[in-house]
Design a protein around this nucleic acid. Sequence first.
DNA 1: TATTGTTATACTCTATAACTATA
DNA 2: TATAGTTATAGAGTATAACAATA
Lengths: 152, 152
Amino acid sequence: MSEPSAVARLVDSSTSHLLPRLGDTVRTLIGDVLDTWGLTGRELRALSSAHGRTLSQRELGSLTGLDRTTMVAVVDKLERLGYARRERDPTDRRKYLITLTGDGTRVADEAIARLAKAQAEFLSPLNAAEQHQLNTLLLRLYEAHDPTCERP
Amino acid sequence: MSEPSAVARLVDSSTSHLLPRLGDTVRTLIGDVLDTWGLTGRELRALSSAHGRTLSQRELGSLTGLDRTTMVAVVDKLERLGYARRERDPTDRRKYLITLTGDGTRVADEAIARLAKAQAEFLSPLNAAEQHQLNTLLLRLYEAHDPTCERP
DNA sequence: TATTGTTATACTCTATAACTATA
DNA sequence: TATAGTTATAGAGTATAACAATA
């Protein structure tokens, strides 16, 4: 096959191309790790957001970065796996209060530890300083573009 | 709402969490820009890979980072929009040769220019040196994890 | 009237399995 | 037998619109 064209090289090496593609790569890696517990990435995020406290389904969504329609399936799944429970809020019967089960808490801890290892492996082409630098830059971009859910 | 839990903060600020989420944010931004030409991100990638040369559908897929089953719909769409043409390779009638139309070439150039502006805006929270640093680090990770398609 | 949760629907992205036609 | 392209299906991610029940 011939050399990539100048245009293709430009597009392929751009940050706006790399970010979604690397994001997909990471998502797949995370998915493979989480298969052990029957979880997907966003379900683990919800699990960790709910870790150690009680929130409404809506609040959990905001924290997790998911809107309320998406949260329904996420909480359904966590409930079905026995990792979380829904209870009606007695002070506002529109709301559900979500709490993790003992199992859910344990799984969150285990999964996060395993993910840390997978992440270390993924980032291993960079040295410690570079990994830190990358994280800092990504965090700044993330906060600048704050994908806060359920704003208006 | 209470403070995020320690566990949630750990997960939320991790590179492996930020990468997929920022990737989605960028993908949405790109999608909004490309709506002007009826294109999605991967279609523009294919368009830019095909820019200025003729490749088989399969080769185009490898270059674009998409497998052959995914390429079908991509090329269908580009053809339907009048941006590309399929012709049978006379030397191997299994293959299609994909070439851009004049329209396709023009649209690729315009869209890439518009995307560059959108990217500049997205990256504007970082200074030039930081933007360059980020791109370098992402590129190194991307190449290390080379998601080469259609290997075996 | 506004908010919580729900369902139905749609649209990104991607891949696997099984098929046809050609080499 | 192997490869190029195709189709059907699946499953990751996300959102909008419309509706119920509750405030």
